[in-house]
């Protein structure tokens, strides 16, 4: 008697486990329902999500998304609530999906995951290929794959056209140079923008793969043809004063280009940076 009760409860438990795993297999096969309350805590995922999310799907973006010096969608970001990327405020929004970058504060990501919230991590795009991967990943996690596919197709078409119309002949050397002397490396989005625009990145010439700080003297001695200066932000910073150093003007003797907001994130807007940079090349000083 006792034994049979035991065996029957065991059977019940087994059945429950089987049912659960069957259910799991089923949800794995079918696409999961698209998340309905998405919060982004990274400037680049902010913008990708704004481009791809269904109406009402994206709940909030970071404050930075409204800053026109770094965000190409600053105006559109006005329509969203903003966050500062802290776990507390994000959690209080009850998101079913949080979008974060690889270098978003690890403590925040860990805490959100500890609270049972799904966090999707995006690699910062260091190339036009990686940029397209990011778009497709965003499409997958938001349940907007067709839209992402279309965006990638359009991007690669425009990129191919730009590459086909690239100027031939010897390439001028160009370098990005931002606050504190930061120069993007040869394996970066900036280097790909420079290359596609028809210049040779100084980082390639100097063999600097990763982004690094280049002292003013070293930049002048490397003698690039074009310096693409970082954009000064509102308010003053001593770290940015060097971008206005008279030596830079003497060095290039031509108009220096600016790193616009399109240089910051891996978005289709990078092609606009390419077009603008190409216009500088033939532009009158």
């Amino acid at each position: 008697m006792l034994g049979s009760v035991r065996s029957s409860s065991l059977a019940l438990a087994l059945a429950a486990i089987c049912a659960a795993s069957a259910l799991g297999a089923e949800t794995g096969a079918k696409p999961a329902p698209a998340p309905a309350r998405v919060v982004s805590i990274n400037l680049c995922t902010d913008q990708l999500a704004m481009l791809l999310a269904a109406p009402g799907q994206l709940r909030s973006v970071t404050m930075l998304a409204r800053d026109p010096t770094v965000s190409v969608l600053a105006e559109r970001a006005q329509a969203y609530r903003t966050n500062h990327g802290h776990a507390e405020e994000v959690y209080l929004d009850w998101p079913d999906l949080v979008l974060a970058g690889r270098y978003t504060a690890q403590a925040t990501v860990n805490m959100l995951r500890g609270l049972g919230i799904r966090v999707e991590i995006f690699e910062p795009a260091q190339s036009f290929n990686a940029l397209q991967e990011d778009i497709l990943q965003m499409g997958r996690v938001l349940g907007r794959e067709p839209q992402a596919r279309a965006m990638v197709d359009d991007f690669s078409k425009r990129l191919a056209a730009l590459r086909a119309s690239a100027p031939k002949g010897p390439r001028d050397v160009a370098a990005t140079w931002a606050a504190r002397g930061y120069m993007s490396g040869s394996q970066s989005l900036a280097a790909e923008i420079i290359t596609t625009a028809g210049f040779a990145p100084l980082a390639v010439k100097l063999g600097r793969k990763a982004g690094s700080f280049l002292p003013l003297e070293a930049l002048v001695m490397a003698d690039p043809d074009l310096v693409i200066a970082g954009q000064s932000r509102a308010g003053h910073a001593h770290s940015e004063d060097m971008l206005a150093h008279p030596a830079l003007r003497s060095l290039t003797g031509r108009q220096t280009a600016l790193q616009s907001n399109a240089w910051v994130c891996g978005l289709p807007a990078v092609l606009e940076a390419v077009v603008a940079l190409r216009a500088t090349e033939g532009g009158t000083p």
Partner: peptide
Amino acid sequence: SPNPFAAHDIVFWMMGSLADTSFT
């Protein structure tokens, strides 16, 4: 300051430097 680099300047104002100065 609205400038994200301004907080970094605290070191400059408290410790001083002549790096990257010009005739300006």
